[in-house]
Design a binder for these strands. Structure first.
Lengths: 277, 277
DNA sequence: TAACAAATGGAATGAATATTCTAATCCCAC
DNA sequence: GTGGGATTAGAATATTCATTCCATTTGTTA
């Protein structure tokens, strides 16, 4: 085993742990997973605390430190503490200044600058979301879903990720979901069984996907209770909907992050589950 | 002397120290100045260490903590440690406090409260994202994608929305994309044509979807350049990956918002497009 | 199945630490 | 200068802590 790894940065330690993970014994693997997930606990806690939180005896923690080449827990802890110290110092000013300077020019095209642009854009879209969505609409929406036998989800094109996410969460919570994705035939056939006992969640943003615009009125006409998530009251899935969530300022298709609608459907699903008890 | 100031934020403590400074005795003033100047030393050091660095006997440190209304040095140290924790995880405090207070009460179960909880959680996950992703990794990732003939996307289960979103954006930008979704047969067949000329973007979070864990090593073994997006360095899609994005603190499957990974893949795709010019 | 090696858990140990106590010192009023 | 209250430093103490050791269990090979 490679010794003398006392002087080590936190990132290097992470790498070393990940690398050796598979070679470690069962207990030690368990500890490896815990310390990677809870570095702060390791930095500030005692052996006994870390042991309890990770569900292992204290001696196992010390053995883990030894296995990584440290003289003991205390020595390993120093590395985790260095992470905390590094975290406080150079953050605010430096980061803000960097963002400002990179915003323009050629630097603004570098992937890192692109990411920070999307992050800040996503931040503001979340703020807008919580301001524009009202409790009454949310209550109405969960009410519709609660009464539904099957929940049909219609979101194609750029909105498909939102539909799949909602499908996933609803299924996890034990709801019956039909995701209208058009695989294996036409969407019409998939939605054929929808009745007034069921519910439909439709998601569509500019440019509205043709199939969505075509199918939506049919389901509404059949009396299926409907919740719409869209970016304009003029969109084809507003008329006839029982509840409409309007998410404004969605950027053009290729540039949108879907952060706001993802958050919204999540809240709908979980809110439905919590209210059901 | 004002007691019961155990629960205190770091900023409040700073204020309290500054306020009482002139009323303290000589030695205690000296200590007050030291702790305000070296909060990190106080957070991580022992009484003996702090005493030595500030040039006073250990007992004076304890008296100082008493004078501020703490039961002892250890109690005061907790406040200084909270500052370090806040530095690395800007969200922790708020999220935990909010969860705890709202989780139970009936108010917290109303959909509107659920939404605001997810929004604030999404906000903090975005902050964490921009802190944990480094420019070097992003550059490397876009470099891999730029050279790829076809881009294969592997994201199943809860990660599927992220994969579909990336597929959508990349296709909008004119890239050739193969989304490994398992429709119409096995994923193995879909990925059969992947070569060293192509690229793979794999997305997986706990609990890692079995098919993902199975397919990933095969593609790596075939030499396909690989970018992984996951929540732990111990996940099955880390070993062999050329670039790894680790997104920490992902909540349990049903509760995660996917906001951070959505943002990340968006930035990757657009960054790729801008860098190509 | 038996024998061996590796790994594990828990108690024992000794070191390190925070805290308390007391005698000495300092500061100020008279 | 002298007395008294506040302040201080350092030794004494009690607690907490990391570490080690060993008996037991687990897993593996013959």
């Amino acid at each position: 085993m490679n010794k003398s790894e006392g002087a080590m940065s936190y990132d290097e330690l992470r790498g070393a742990i990940a690398q050796r993970h598979r070679a470690l014994s069962g207990r030690l693997q368990q500890i490896a997973e815990f310390v990677l997930d809870h570095p702060t606990d390791v930095a500030l806690g005692t052996v006994a605390e870390v042991a309890q939180r990770s569900g292992v005896p204290p001696s196992a923690i010390v053995r883990f430190a030894h296995a990584l080449g440290f003289g003991g827990f205390t020595e390993m802890q120093q590395v985790f503490r260095s992470r905390l110290v590094a975290g406080v110092a150079p953050s605010y000013k430096a980061r803000l200044a960097r963002m400002k300077s990179e915003e323009k020019s050629v630097l603004g095209r570098r992937p890192a600058a692109v990411l920070s642009r999307f992050v800040s854009e996503a931040q503001s879209s979340l703020v807008a979301l919580s301001q524009s969505v009202h409790a009454r609409e949310l209550d109405a929406a969960t009410g519709i879903l609660a009464k539904a036998r099957d929940i049909y989800l219609l979101g194609l094109g750029g909105s498909f990720p939102v539909a799949t996410h909602l499908a996933y969460v609803l299924r996890k919570l034990g709801r019956r979901v039909v995701l209208l994705d058009g695989t294996g035939g036409s969407i019409h056939e998939q939605s054929h069984a929808a009745t007034v006992e069921d519910a439909l969640v439709a998601i569509s943003f500019r440019n509205y996907y043709p199939d969505t615009a075509r199918l939506f009125p049919e389901l509404v006409a059949r009396g299926v209770p409907t919740i719409s998530i869209t970016d304009s009251l003029l969109s084809p899935i507003v008329e006839g909907a029982h509840v409409v969530f309007e998410i404004q300022d969605m950027p053009e298709p290729a540039l949108r992050t879907l952060v706001a609608p993802m958050c919204l459907v999540q809240a709908m699903a979980i809110g439905l589950d919590l209210a059901a008890d």
